[in-house]
Amino acid sequence: MIYFYDGSEEAFLTALLLSYHDPAPILTAGNRQLVLGQETVFVRADADMAKKARERLLTFDKDCMADLGLLLRSGDADKDEIALRYFRLLAEKKRPVRKMLSEDAAFAADTCIRRVTFEVHRFHGFVRFMQCASGTLYAPISPDNDICDLLLPHFRARLPQFPFVIHDVKRGKAAVYDGEHSFFAPLKEAEIVLSADESAWQALWKGYYENVNIPSRERLRQMRGYMPVRYWKFMPEKH
């Protein structure tokens, strides 16, 4: 049977419970092609069922909800399946399965989670702010995974006096810090008025990038391996 859900944690836990005795469930939040004759269920989040599932799972592994959060943020097309199989394995073994790496379900989840946390780490470095006339820092991003909110604490800790907006232009959402509070909001397009000296600082940075390079040791493949081309879009030094 195919289980459709909205991609939320509550609905996932509901679906996990509903499909528990199904020998071959397929879970998806996307627009999966319907196969003629295959039964489908549209799972709506049920607070009570989710609570029941969550409490039970936490008795097996007190850290498993953090895994779920990361898995559901993944940009992998199969993330729902990966998460479902991981939590079914947890329910079967009744103890943490995170390190049972010879189990396909555990290894797939481990890889998937690693990709998300690795991208968060990369973006701690790759985010590029520009300063607006109001003083607010604005950074457009377009990450593979839905990590906008995970980036906020890092920048809030190091830039406590600067209001900033990290805008995921791919998903139309933003993480906002106003100098005191942080929140997350849908944001389709942002209108930006840059500060007077922004372009001069960008020019200095581009100059620095160019001059710190050692041309006689060109290793483009290595550069692209560390900093994939898809991330260059919002980096002034790559334009």
């Binding site: 470095g125 790759f126 710190v212 390079n213 050692i214 041309p215 550069m223 560390y226 900093m227």
Partner: peptide, 16 residues
Amino acid sequence: CCHSFTPDGRCISLLK
């Protein structure tokens, strides 16, 4: 934390 990479494959972490 690396912030950028130059064409020689090195990481830019600090303003050097």
